[in-house]
Every structure is written in C-alpha cells, then in structure tokens.
Amino acid sequence: MNRKNAKILLIGGDLRQLTAADELKRLGYTVSVCGFGTYAGAEYKDGIHLPDGTDAVLLPVPVFRGEYMNLPFSEERVTPERLSGILRGHTRLVCGGMIPAELSGELEKSGAAVYDLCESDGFNIMNAVPTAEGAAAVAMDNMKITLAGCSAAVIGFGRVGKALCRLLSAMGAHVTAVSRSERDLAGSEACGYIPADHSALPGIAGEQDVIFNTVPHTVVTEEVLAAMKKDAPLIDLASRPGGVDTMVASRLGIRVISALSLPGKVAPVTAGKIIAKCLDKRLREAVL
C-alpha cells in the first residue's frame, strides 16, 4: 500500500496512540484521531466517527477495559456492539490489541482484515524490553534493598521472561529462571542464570527477595506463597487472570502487584513507535 494514499483513523487509547499518530504522520500517512476528550494539548474531536475513505483503523491496546472501550481521556462509553456498528463495512483493516473474538469475527464477515497486535510476534518481542524495564522499576519501588545483589526469580522464560532475566542480571541480581521446558532451562543456564523447574518453586520461593511471574495461568499456588518471604514483592506481569492465587496471597499477607500494560505506563513514546512500526509493516504488506 502506498503510504501517501492511505487514510488511518486512531480511536482513543492512551499516550501510545498519540505517539503512534505522530509517527504514522511522519511516515507519510493521512491520520485522524478521535476519542481523546478534552485531553490537554490534543486538538482532536471526541466523538467516535470514521472520516470518508478510511482505509485502516487503529484501536487501543487493549481495545476494551471491562465492558467498555479503552478511552481513558474520554467520557464516552463505547460497548463492543457500538464499536462493531461503527466499523462494519466502513474500513478495510482494523488493528488493535486483544480484540475480542466476536468483534473480530463480525469485522471479518463485513470484509475487513483484522490485525491483533497482541498476536504479533514482532510486536510482542519489541514490547518485551519496555515491559522488563517497567517491571524492574516496579520492583525498585517496592523493595527495601537494591536489585544489585538480591535474589530474583522470574517465572516463565518467554519473550518477557528472557528480557527481564537479562536486565536483572545486568543490574547485578542473582537470577533464577523458572520454566517447565527442558529447552528453556538449558537456555537459561547457558545464559548464566540459575535454572529451576516449576516443581521446584515451593523449595526456592523462600530464598527470593522478589518474584516476577510472566505465566498467564495459576502457577504461584498456596504452597509457593506459604514459602515466600513476607516482605518479598510478587510482581505479576501476566495478562488476566494472571498467574497468582490472589485470595491465598491476601490471606497470607503476601504483596501481589499486578503490573499490566507497562510499556504504555513507563515508556509510552517507545511503545507508541512500536505500534506505528507494526501497523506500517502490515499496511505495506497489504493489498487494500
């Protein structure tokens, strides 16, 4: 697709979207923005509407927070049904994060291509670095000791887990990488981390000054929580419902910090440029 001929509409979201808008304009696209209410410095209209000839729509990451669309700067309450009605038949590509399956299906039936950023390897790999940096910042805000010299366990050795282990190790932490995968355990050991199988978690939890979880299902069970130090923060980076038994953690007095969407909170400019880069690549590959 020729950038000069493509019209993109960005609907709501956080500061990442505004950065993405600026970056897409810089690349040569015609960009409109709505859904930012009276946000200071934003000259954008608040009402959700599609200009004629819109080729692509960029939705927030994630698209929804609970029942309504993720519009933190707007007072509008947009349901999935309303958003579907606005988009169906009026654009050829819809991009966003964690697009509900029902909405995605309705849009595809209307002839639109759907590109979910959260299912893109490129997006997730690039976001791993700001996520890891944000996680380290959360830890430092909630610890009474430095990360340098501390014992830190990272549960899960995927994209975020690897980036976080690398960062923590560079900061001087003694890093234990926890995984069920024999390949990941071998890889973590080759990188200089302490490898530990999931089954060993209850035995090593009490040695950790901070624990990070990246696995999106319950892996931090009552047995693990009971073994933890009471003053060791437990930082859950996994998407909802997370990987921690929060009811048990509350009963045992363990601090669980749910740290979601960190790129948008700690590095919105970097995260916005990542969104723009991924959408630009998708548009250039598309024949719209």
Rank of each mutant, 00 (worst) to 15 (best):
V210N: 01
E285C: 14
L185C: 12
R77F: 13
A139V: 08
D280V: 06
A226Y: 06
S199M: 01
S181H: 03
N213L: 05
I257L: 15
G206R: 06
E189I: 02
E133Y: 13
Y29I: 00
K229A: 03
G111M: 12
G206P: 09
Y115R: 07
A163W: 03
A40V: 15
D52F: 07
E108A: 14
D209T: 06
A6D: 00
L9Y: 02
P72S: 10
R183H: 09
P62T: 11
V287H: 11
L27Q: 09
P130Q: 08
E182F: 11
E75D: 15
P100F: 02
E76R: 15
V248A: 13
G172D: 11
V61P: 02
V33P: 03
I11C: 04
P268G: 10
D121T: 13
G149I: 01
T214R: 05
T218P: 05
L15K: 02
A200N: 00
L9F: 04
R240N: 15
P202N: 04
T218G: 06
L164A: 04
G242E: 09
L103P: 01
E222V: 14
V269M: 01
V244F: 10
K230R: 15
G158A: 12
R82W: 12
A227L: 04
P233W: 07
E106I: 04
E222I: 09
G122V: 07
V219Y: 00
V224A: 12
I257N: 12
L10C: 02
L93K: 11
A232G: 03
R82Q: 14
K273G: 13
I86W: 04
G97M: 01
G97S: 00
I99P: 08
G53K: 13
H198S: 10
V269L: 05
A139E: 03
D116N: 13
G96A: 07
P51W: 10
G122E: 10
P233F: 06
R65Q: 09
L279N: 01
G253S: 12
V266R: 04
D245T: 12
V114L: 13
K144C: 09
T176L: 08
E189G: 12
E108W: 06
